[in-house]
Design a protein around this nucleic acid. Structure first.
Lengths: 103, 103
DNA sequence: ACATATAGTAAGTATAGACTTACGGTATGT
DNA sequence: ACATACCGTAAGTCTATACTTACTATATGT
């Protein structure tokens, strides 16, 4: 819930969206994530840190492996924000139509 | 449809989110938007350009005034993306639980 | 105890992009 | 026709941040 802004900053970067896409299929270790990508593994680690701090991703460790997975609660927070924006925008539009309507 | 990425880039900036918040109450002219803010009016224009190109905002002109308003379709595009991510994440989590379940 | 595998951190660089000021463009009113 | 109001664009600056390489940390296996 300090999340909203952090989530949108996190989603603003295309590389982080690429990482999220990889996590759609399920949890992945850092090395696995970095495998298909053009950037270095440390860079991936840094992005994962941002994603985790935003609440979009959760981490679980097994041995030396750090697994990351999409955290649905983070997505929920963002959906709530969008829903508010949406309904406010629709209401504003309705008022506007009302005012402009030829009587 | 070239939107998804553009929308997320647009929402990544806090100043643009501030502008969107102002538009919640209804359409506003550029000068009105810039009024309460610390940055210059040209800066606001530049942000509005980004928002418009992303599809999050629509423009209508009346005289010399350029009115901007939130475009619900743009929000819808983003919601669709989140819903996909969400359901994929849930499905992946379900599979994971299934695998880990003690038999 | 040592080697290996896996990953995070530190420090430095380079670039995208968010600002500014100055200027140009187009309606509207007199 | 001119002045005014409102706005977009151009060009340049400056900072945030996305990268790299080098290093450190921790867990596991022999």
């Amino acid at each position: 819930m300090p999340y909203r802004s952090a989530i949108l900053e996190a989603l603003g970067d295309p590389t982080r969206r690429e990482i999220l896409d990889k996590l759609r299929a399920g949890p992945r270790a850092v090395g696995e994530i970095a495998a298909g990508m053009t950037i270095s593994r440390p860079a991936v680690s840094q992005h994962l840190k941002v994603l985790k701090e935003s609440g979009l991703v959760a981490e679980t460790r097994a041995g030396t492996r750090h697994y990351f997975a999409i955290a649905p609660e983070g997505l929920g927070e963002l959906r709530a924000y969008l829903d508010e924006l949406w309904s406010d925008a629709l209401a504003a539009f309705a008022r506007h139509v009302e005012k402009e309507r030829p009587s």
